[in-house]
């Protein structure tokens, strides 16, 4: 097959199109500042942290706490950890906080209720609890944090797939 990029005849419309392409901006700004949310999602590096980063992490952890103690979060709720765990901000807290809010937003966007979805999410919740149990012994253990991260990514992907499929179709299952 010939490469028609080079051989196709060039019309006035082609010239106009090429000019228009060149005029397209190479950069576009997001409509909101993405940094604050990003910062909370960044996994820890085992390197020095700027002092203000600790303060930010503490703020995130405080937020996470407020999520934990709300009694009305529905099937995706995680139960409150023992108080002993809450004395310092950790990667686990930041991760939970960000993912739980994303998950709640995605669940809010789903306009159907289906018991099997609730059951499935409960399975992930149970797994999250297990990993958190292990993290209580080994805080910041990278493999456990990766597992936690994976569990939430799976849930978000799952909810995203459900949201993409027509609610009526999905409702049959």
């Amino acid at each position: 097959m010939r490469d028609r990029d080079d051989t196709a005849p060039h019309s006035a419309e082609d010239d106009a199109l090429d000019l228009a392409i060149q005029a397209l901006p190479r950069s576009q700004s997001p409509s909101r500042d993405l940094w604050p949310q990003l910062q909370a999602q960044l996994p820890p590096r085992h390197a020095r942290r700027a002092p203000w980063a600790w303060a930010a992490a503490a703020a995130v952890a405080a937020l996470a706490l407020s999520v934990w103690i709300r009694p009305d979060l529905g099937p995706g709720t995680i139960s409150a950890p023992p108080l002993a765990q809450l004395d310092s901000p950790t990667a686990e807290h930041s991760l939970l906080n960000v993912y739980e809010s994303q998950k709640a937003a995605q669940m809010g966007a789903l306009n159907f209720s289906n018991p099997s979805v609730g059951r499935q999410l409960a399975i992930w919740d149970g797994a999250v609890q297990q990993v958190r149990g292990a993290l209580s012994y080994y805080p910041e253990e990278p493999r456990l944090l990766r597992q936690l991260d994976r569990l939430y990514r799976q849930q978000l992907n799952y909810l995203e797939t459900l949201a993409m499929v027509d609610p009526q179709v999905a409702a049959y299952y």
Binding site: P30, W35, A47, A50, A53
Partner: peptide, 16 residues
């Protein structure tokens, strides 16, 4: 080296 403030500046520079 893990400096978040520098990463924030990189983010600002390249996010668009």
């Amino acid at each position: 080296a893990g400096d978040l403030a520098s990463f924030a500046r990189l983010h600002a520079q390249f996010v668009d």
